[in-house]
């Protein structure tokens, strides 16, 4: 590794001129709550590492599937199913991390016309919606996953509850991060990104 891995962002804030606070420019830079609270930072770093692991692991399974077909001549019947399950876990853990960075794709057309105060109110409302829906999904998912424990996946014989747990974990993370952001919106309204800034962050 050529660069030093520091606990502070390696680049300064370029967008949020209102506060002068440092906004992370790279996906591994800690953001405001990560800088302020170390248990929270450990959680987010775990999400980062888990998501990367699922991504690389699924890639490995795809390659294994090709190799098993052409080199061993008898394909494994379980690579595809396991890769699909890897994709599910990757999706929901990543979605949790994306919520931590609050960059889930949204339509900013109305928000961009509002003033600063309006943006903060709108953002808090959107977070409330996310909290309610993800809380419901996490709750229903836990129940559904428990019931699905008796069913087995056809090729790998893994319990189907393992599959549905990915959604439980993902929506729990989303709900938690949305709660953190809601708290920050109230305590530090200056941190709420402007709509235009959001567009740029989603875009890059």
């Amino acid at each position: 590794m050529s660069e030093e891995v520091g606990s502070y962002p390696t680049s300064g804030n370029e967008n949020n001129l209102a506060t002068g606070l440092r906004v992370p420019q790279e996906p591994d830079d800690p953001d405001f709550p990560e800088q302020r609270n170390s248990p929270y930072r450990y959680l987010v770093v775990t999400e980062r590492l888990a998501a990367c692991t699922f991504l690389v692991g699924t890639l490995g399974l795809i390659i294994l599937q090709v190799v098993s077909r052409y080199i061993f001549n008898s394909p494994f019947s379980w690579t595809e199913e396991l890769a699909r399950f890897g994709l599910l876990w990757f999706t929901f853990v990543s979605a949790g991390f994306v919520m931590a960075r609050r960059i889930h794709i949204a339509v900013d057309i109305v928000a961009s016309k509002l003033g600063r105060k309006g943006t903060v109110v709108l953002d808090t409302f959107a977070l409330a919606m996310v909290i309610i829906a993800s809380g419901m999904m996490a709750f229903a998912g836990a129940e559904f996953a428990a019931e699905a424990a008796r069913l087995q996946a056809p090729a790998t014989s893994l319990p189907m509850s393992l599959v549905y747990s990915s959604a439980v974990v993902g929506f729990t993370l989303i709900c938690f991060h949305a709660l953190v952001h809601m708290y920050l919106n109230i305590r530090h309204p200056e941190l709420v990104p402007d709509a235009m800034e959001n567009l740029e962050r989603e875009a890059v």
Partner: peptide, 19 residues
């Protein structure tokens, strides 16, 4: 098709099944 019994059926008949 990618269902275990289909794979079993074909291999029981002597073939190599690929889902």
């Amino acid at each position: 098709p990618n269902a275990p019994l289909y794979l079993t059926n074909i291999s029981a008949m002597g073939g190599t099944a690929t889902p």
